[in-house]
């Protein structure tokens, strides 16, 4: 057993390092991934170990970064293309949604595109409207793309290692607010299977379904509710949004009869909307209350820390929402 105290950022780097050591076809390409070490430091030091042919600093050309990763994946490499901010995904959408996502299908199953698009999103650094978004719904709305969003140090490592074994393109969205988070990582532990959600907290009164950084807000809210209100909320971390593990959600919601979905992305037509619709359809006969969405406000993100923090769900808002539901 190899237990290490590490951070979300270092766990990501460890996953990349180990995978690159084991498979010389794995390459990293993106803006500032080499000499600079990555905008958030995830790829620091990798160019020294693996060289410029495998850790490739690119021009500022997001469409061609993703597009060339598509071609490299088709021609036998396993590229990790880094998009510095998920906010830039619109630049790449043709290569991602029209090419990477559809190649296996359009070509009748002849070939897949085993690439990982690593990026990060979310609020927390006063980075403004174009560097703080949660755009996972764009990805989830496109069949053919897998989508992983780790919330813990363990998943930063294990989910990224698993993403690098997938036969299909994976969009891997980290949260910029989690990079310095500390945690214990057991690199030898059998990780939760790819595509399986994880019950982070048991609770009989309601089920909170969430992912990425909002897991921590949901857990904080659940602690407050337990100590101050005697309410027991279960918290499910989806880990991957595609595949989506409804089998873990269903029995818990049927048991509790109440469900809440928490997401940092804006509410309208978002991931929370999809999850709420599914829970309503699948668990209708068991529900005591409407399935509630606690999601990002339908507004852009401000630079002002006060406005920014209140644009997305806070532990306080989640706590209040549960109290309103159960009063």
């Amino acid at each position: 057993m190899t237990m290490i105290e590490t951070t979300y950022r270092d766990a990501l780097r460890l996953a990349l390092t180990e995978t690159m050591r084991a498979d010389e076809n794995v390459i990293i390409m993106g803006e500032e991934v080499g000499r600079y070490g990555g905008a958030y430091g995830v790829t620091k030091g990798l160019i020294e170990e693996f060289g410029e042919d495998r850790v490739i600093d690119t021009p500022i050309s997001e469409p061609a970064i993703i597009g060339s990763a598509v071609g490299a994946a088709m021609a036998g490499l396993r590229p990790v293309a880094e998009l510095m901010y998920v906010d830039f995904i619109g630049m790449t959408m043709d290569q991602l949604a029209n090419q990477a996502a559809k190649i296996r299908y359009m070509f009748g199953g002849q070939i897949g595109v085993p690439m990982v698009l690593r990026t990060q999103g979310g609020t927390g650094r006063s980075a403004g409207a174009q560097h703080s978004q949660s755009l996972e719904a764009y990805v989830m709305h496109t069949p053919g793309l897998r989508l992983a969003m780790p919330s813990t140090v363990e998943d930063a490592y294990h989910l990224l290692r698993q993403a690098l074994m997938q036969p299909d393109p994976v969009v891997f969205i980290e949260h910029k607010g989690l990079y310095t988070m500390k945690g214990t990582l057991d690199t030898d532990a059998e990780p939760a299977a790819w595509g399986k959600a994880r019950v982070m907290r048991e609770g009989a009164d309601l089920v909170i379904v969430s992912y990425s950084r909002q897991i921590h807000h949901a857990l904080a809210a659940a602690d407050t509710l337990a100590s101050e209100d005697g309410i027991q909320a279960a918290v499910i971390d989806l880990r991957t949004l595609n595949p989506l593990d409804f089998d873990t959600i269903r029995p818990l919601v049927e048991q509790a009869g109440r469900a809440m979905v928490v997401s940092e992305g804006v509410m309208t037509s978002g991931v929370a909307a999809e999850l709420a619709a599914r829970i309503t359809e699948e668990c209708f006969d068991f529900l005591e209350d409407p399935v509630v969405r606690v999601a990002g406000e339908d507004i852009p993100i401000s630079v002002s820390p006060l406005l920014e923090q209140n644009s997305v769900p806070t532990p306080e808002l989640i706590t209040e929402a549960v109290r309103m539901m159960l009063k």
Binding site: D53, G67, V70, G71, M74, L77, Q95, Q99
Partner: peptide, 25 residues
């Protein structure tokens, strides 16, 4: 044949990646 494309220019960057793969491999 890595594919015909219905997006104008859509198939162009793939050859950069395929060229990269040819170089590395």
């Amino acid at each position: 044949h890595l594919g015909a494309n219905a997006i104008v220019g859509g198939g162009i960057p793939a050859v950069v990646g395929a060229g990269l793969a040819a170089r590395n491999r």
